[in-house]
Nucleic acid binder design. Sequence first.
DNA 1: GAAACGGATTGATCTTTATCAAGCGCGATA
DNA 2: TATCGCGCTTGATAAAGATCAATCCGTTTC
Lengths: 229, 229
Amino acid sequence: MPTDRFQEIRSLPLFAGISDDSFAALTRGAYVQNFPPHVEMITEGDPADFLHIVASGRIELYSSWDRNESSIAFLKPYDTFILAATIKDRPYLMSARTVEKSRIILIPSEDIRTVFERDSDFAKAIVGELAICYRGAIKQMKNIKLRSSAERLANYVAKHHRRAGSTGSFQLPVEKRKLASFLSMTPENLSRAFAALRSHGVEVSGSLILIKDPEKLDAYAKPNSLIDG
Amino acid sequence: MPTDRFQEIRSLPLFAGISDDSFAALTRGAYVQNFPPHVEMITEGDPADFLHIVASGRIELYSSWDRNESSIAFLKPYDTFILAATIKDRPYLMSARTVEKSRIILIPSEDIRTVFERDSDFAKAIVGELAICYRGAIKQMKNIKLRSSAERLANYVAKHHRRAGSTGSFQLPVEKRKLASFLSMTPENLSRAFAALRSHGVEVSGSLILIKDPEKLDAYAKPNSLIDG
DNA sequence: GAAACGGATTGATCTTTATCAAGCGCGATA
DNA sequence: TATCGCGCTTGATAAAGATCAATCCGTTTC
């Protein structure tokens, strides 16, 4: 088996600064798994046996309670997930399913905790990763608590438009039903919110979003680096 | 100046495992500040110059956007706050104000980052702290996204009743207006939600909450360790 | 190419939550 | 003890969002 089997993740923030020894220890028991679309890979409440890294494809993190379900995040290469549960040896708080065909790298939690104990560079990298995750979660909470559903959508569009290079249009990365859940609304409400955005410079055609007037959109969305940054 | 000036925080999870040298380095530039009630100590967006530790009193973390404001957490001795911003050297995402007269220990962020770099035990402790904070934020998000306001209140009551020893009653730790904001509702809606809880075994008299029928309350609240644990 | 499927949209209606406006209650103050 | 102030409560109303149902439409399937 080639030694560079996991070279594709060697330069991730989480691993870039660690020794070759540590990286070898982490990848020794690691393996790659392929999943078809729409497959549940992780069920919330289960023990966190592996750190997951998205090598290709798209993953949805979501959660359920009493007949309700809600999307919490969408992941792309090379996002890692379930790091906190892995480190604390606690059960997963979220379920995970593939949005499309995906390739996932799995590293046993046991190995993560072992290397974490003995390689302080890895510990530091984990601190950086967790701090970013935590701040992301706080931002998301502020988004939900401080904004109406239409405002959340406007900011979603403005942010993704910017990320896509402000070229006047971009493609939605997930189905609208999932986007609705992520933004804490129903698909029907999302449809109407998109319709309402027409008067703020946004046109919709299927999953293609056209931003006719970015200034007008921003004037309505009022994006804020402490929420959307 | 006495060397044990900060002994009260020496055994906190964040500091318990670090060397005396590291602890000395952390406390060398630290100081204690006293605040009267209802004073803003931190403004979101400001640079994170200090790690804060509640020595006494009660602190509210909250956030604002476009005329809206929302409570995000209430802290008590010896909670720490703004650790993630401190570590990443990023601006605060939340504002902080005193709920009552409070004593706060401030440790310069610079010193936190210095000791973090050279003491791997401190780095590990920070990992533990951040992982807990992150998981707490995710739980709170699930609470908001998956439950109605009445369900959130029911679970708040059930949880705090249990924490207070399940003695049949407990005292609200904050004013109802702040509790309402924390639970993402208006004070009026909170009043009505409390009224609705009467039929689920809960009586209210001012800030004293009486749980007449804990089983009935739990049957309605359906508490879940992955949200309320 | 026709049919079937599933997500998206639209309309009608209902529920939940917010807003506005009085009043109430209780502790602080004089 | 009277009164003031402030937070809490209650009622009426409005807005936001959810639900239910029907239809549309693009894609897949045969």
